[in-house]
């Protein structure tokens, strides 16, 4: 129960918007709901619908529209590599291929230890520092720029140590 678990956070989020704009809180509440498990489950969607007086379908439609919300359990971390044009001009596709080889998975797949889901995403506004990716996990979203495969494998082992 979102409201029971995070009463202060929920109130603080609601206080940012006028009463007639209560529905605006849906996006921050979804980030809050996603914090622990890395995805928004059905119960959380029902919770949010109730708090905001909107339907569960409304909430689900928001979850599916925006790429930073997930409705299925994936790896503990999403590793999201930008492969848009400016990054691709600086080797992002070759980087992603090499990363797949090293991890033994394809784009969109999760490692067998359920730690990492590797994804190709659209522009992250860091075109001058490609290859780059963001990690989305228990510690929020973080940028990793000017990367190569060695640095990335090093980062993964650091992340693994930090959560175990």
């Amino acid at each position: 129960m979102l409201l029971k678990k995070y009463p202060k956070e929920v109130q603080q989020i609601l206080s940012k918007y006028p009463p007639e704009g209560k529905r605006s809180a849906v996006m921050p509440l979804l980030f809050l709901a996603q914090r622990e498990e890395g995805y928004v489950n059905k119960a959380a969607m029902q919770d949010i619908a109730k708090i905001l007086d909107i339907t569960e379908t409304d909430v689900a439609s928001i979850v599916r529209f925006y790429t930073l919300y997930h409705d299925k359990k994936a790896g503990k971390y999403h590793m999201q590599v930008c492969t848009d044009l400016p990054c691709a001009l600086r080797g992002a596709e070759e980087f992603l291929d090499a990363l797949c080889d090293n991890l033994g998975i394809e784009v969109g797949e999760t490692t067998s230890d359920r730690f990492l889901t590797l994804e190709a995403v659209t522009c992250l506004a860091a075109c001058d520092k490609a290859p780059m990716f963001q990690t989305q996990g228990p510690d929020g979203i973080k940028y990793h720029e000017n990367m190569n495969v060695d640095k990335t494998m090093g980062l993964i082992s650091v992340l693994k140590k930090s959560v175990t």
Binding site: D84, L85, P86, T122, C123, L124, A125, A126, C127, D128
Partner: peptide, 11 residues
Amino acid sequence: DESEPGTFKDR
């Protein structure tokens, strides 16, 4: 909401 491929100034 800076997200045009090639734009990274606002950040």
